[in-house]
Design a protein around this nucleic acid. Structure first.
Lengths: 337, 337
DNA sequence: TTGTATGCGTTATCAA
DNA sequence: TTGATAACGCATACAA
C-alpha cells in the first residue's frame, strides 16, 4: 500500500531487482547487501503486495474451500484441518459457504476463478456429477471431498470416506452382539455419502444372511428432528428392532429421544450407533457410540495434497485417497461381554 | 488466466477500454456494441482477473476474518453470518484460524495485509489491548468483535455483546424465582467477555442485595470438563446453591453432569442457565435454558458495517454497536409459576 | 461514443 | 553480483 519495493530500492541505493532478490532469498545478492536491504525493509515497514506479486508470478498462494455449511461441525472441523495446513505452508484460504444452494455454489466457483486461486478444495453435497465434472475445469488443481467424477480428470484428486466399509463395521458389530433386527435411519435420499452408506448397509446385512424383514432403511432429514420422526416410524414398523444405525450423530440424538419416549432403553433394548463423531456425541447421555470419521485429517490431507500438486504441477491423475472410518463404542451400545 | 480483455477486444474489433467499459456497466458504450461485447466475452469464456483488477484499482473485494477457532460453534456461526453478507455483496472472505495462539494471530494479520484485504473482521480472544491497538493500523477498515480499543481509532468499529446486561438478566431471573444462592461458573479468568460477565454478575448480585456468601465465582476452562470440575467445587463449597449460571453452554453441560452425580435435580434443586445458545443447548436433556447471543447476526452486522465503511470510506470513528443477549428459558430452569 | 497512453507493484528476462 | 526493461491484466485519465 504505502511503501513499495521502489521506495526501499531508492533508500538502499540499489535497483528494485536487488531488493526483490534480497527479500525473496534468491541467488545473486551478496550476503552483506542482502542483510542491509532486509534490515532496511524491516525498518521502513515494507510489506510486499500480494496482488502485484500474483500478477507477476501467476500464483497467489491462495486456495478456495467450498463447504455446504460452515456451521455444521463436520465441515467446520474440515475447515480447521485445511486452514492449519494452509497456514503451515503460507497459503490463505477463501471460505465459501454454498448454503446447500446450487446457484450459490456455482457463483462461488466463478468468484474463486476471478480471485485466481491456485487450487480448490471442494465439498459439494448436492451438485450433479455432470456439473461437477464441468466446473472442475475452471481450476488448475482440485481436491474433491467425498465425491467422485464420472470421468477421471488429471487435475482432480478425490478424497473419500469408505462409507461401505463403515456400514459393514456397524452391521458386523450388531450381529456380533446378537442384535439381528437392524434399522438404518439413513438421512436424505439424495446425499452422496448417504447413498454409499445405504448400499453398504444393505450389502452387509445380506452378507450376514439377515432375513428380508430383519433390516430396513428409513429416510429422513439430516437433523435430530428428522431422526426423531424416522425413529418413530422405525419403532412402529419394526417393534422388535434391537439395533439402530443413524446417518449422523444429530440424527442419532433424535433417535435416542424417540426410543426414550417409546420406552425402549438404550442400549439395553436398542443398541444405537451414530456416524461422524462430532463433539456432541460425548456430551449427551448416554454417550453416543458412533462411526468416527477423521474430519480434521480429511481437511488436512486435502490441503497437503493440494499443496503438493500445486508445487510439483505434475500432470496425470492421482488415485483417490480413501479414509476408513472407525467404530467407537461408548454408552449407547451394550458393554463388551 | 487464458483469455484476457485484449483477446476479447481483438475479437470484437474494438479497443480494450471499450471492452472494459462494456463488461463493467460503465457509461460510454453504445447499447449495441455493449451487447455484442458482452455476448462475445461470454461466448469466449472470458473471466476477469481479480488480481489484475486489484492492482489497478487498489481494491480487492476481499476481507479477512480472524477467529480463535472455527470448530467452535460460536465462531462458526459468526463466520456463516459474515460469509452470507459478503456473498450478497460480491466479497470473498479469507478465513484465518488463530488457534488460540498469539504468534499465529500476528502472522495472520501480516498475511492479510500482504493479501491486500479491503477490511478485517477480527475476533481476538487473548491478544493484549496494546497489541490490538497497534495491529489495527495495518488495515484501512477493521471491525472488532467483542473487544474494545484503549484509544478509539477512526478506522476501527467495535461490535459488542452487552455481557453486563446479560448477567443482570440472569441474576434477576434467579432472584425472581427465589433462587438466592447463586454460583457463576465463570470460565477462564483471562477472557475478555468473561471479565465483563463476571463484573456484571457481581454487580447484579450486589444490586439485588445478596449477602456476601450467597453468590460466588468459580473459574474453569471453557469446556464441559472444566464446567464439571468447577461445579464439583461449587456444590461442595455452596451446598445450598440453587441457581447456577455458566460461562457458556459447554460449561453448562459439565455442570449438569456434576449436578446429576451429586444428586441435585435440575431444575428442581438447581436451576441451570448457560450462555451463547449453541445448537447443543436444545439437544441435551433437560434442554438448556441459556442466555442467547445472536452469533449469526453478529457476523452479518460486522460484514454489513465493514462493507459500508469500505464503500463510503467515510472517516471518523463510529460509536460501538452493542447487541443485547436474550434469556431463553427451557427445561433446565423451573417452569413459570 | 471510442481510443491511446500510462500506471498499479512485482518478478522474469536479458544485459552489463 | 547487479541493473534496466518489459511484462502480468486491468482501469484511470485524458484525447479524439
Amino acid at each position: 500500500m504505502g511503501i513499495t519495493i521502489a521506495d526501499v530500492a531508492k533508500a538502499a541505493g540499489v535497483s528494485m531487482m536487488t531488493v526483490s532478490r534480497a527479500l525473496n532469498d534468491k541467488e545473486g545478492v551478496s550476503a552483506t547487501t542482502r542483510r542491509r536491504i532486509v534490515d532496511l525493509a524491516q525498518e521502513m515497514g515494507y510489506q510486499p503486495s500480494g496482488i502485484a506479486r500474483g500478477l507477476a508470478t501467476k500464483r497467489t498462494a491462495t486456495v478456495g474451500l467450498i463447504v455446504p455449511d460452515i456451521a455444521n461441525p463436520f465441515f467446520a472441523e474440515i475447515a480447521r484441518g485445511v486452514e492449519d495446513v494452509a497456514y503451515a505452508h503460507d497459503y490463505n484460504v477463501f471460505l465459501l459457504n454454498a448454503n446447500e444452494n446450487i446457484a450459490r455454489e456455482l457463483n462461488a466457483l466463478v468468484s474463486l476463478q476471478v480471485k485466481q486461486v491456485d487450487g480448490l478444495i471442494w465439498c459439494s453435497s448436492r451438485l450433479p456429477e455432470a456439473e461437477l465434472q464441468e466446473q472442475t475445469t475452471r481450476f488448475a488443481h482440485v481436491i474433491l471431498i467425498n465425491r467422485t467424477l464420472p470421468v477421471p480428470h488429471a487435475h482432480v484428486t478425490t478424497l473419500q470416506i469408505d462409507d461401505v466399509n463403515g456400514a459393514h463395521q456397524v452391521v458386523t458389530y450388531f450381529i456380533s452382539r446378537q442384535r439381528g433386527k437392524i434399522a438404518f435411519i439413513a438421512g436424505p435420499s439424495d446425499s452422496q455419502s448417504g447413498a454409499k452408506r445405504r448400499a453398504g448397509f444393505l450389502a452387509a446385512c445380506r452378507e450376514h444372511g439377515l432375513a428380508e424383514n430383519d433390516y430396513r432403511l428409513f429416510s429422513c432429514s439430516p437433523t435430530s428432528a428428522g431422526g426423531y420422526a424416522a425413529a418413530q416410524s422405525a419403532l412402529a414398523e419394526m417393534p422388535h428392532v434391537n439395533g439402530i444405525w443413524s446417518y449422523n450423530d444429530l440424527v442419532a440424538v433424535g433417535v435416542l429421544q424417540a426410543c426414550r419416549e417409546n420406552g425402549r432403553a438404550v442400549p439395553a433394548d436398542v443398541a444405537l450407533i451414530g456416524a461422524d463423531n462430532i463433539p456432541l456425541a460425548t456430551l449427551i447421555s448416554p454417550q453416543l457410540s458412533t462411526l468416527h470419521v477423521d474430519k480434521y485429517g480429511l481437511g488436512a490431507q486435502a490441503m497437503e495434497l493440494l499443496r503438493e500438486r500445486i508445487a510439483t504441477s505434475q500432470p496425470g491423475p492421482l488415485p483417490p485417497r480413501i479414509l476408513t472410518p472407525k467404530l467407537i463404542l461408548r454408552e449407547s451400545t451394550p458393554p463388551a461381554a
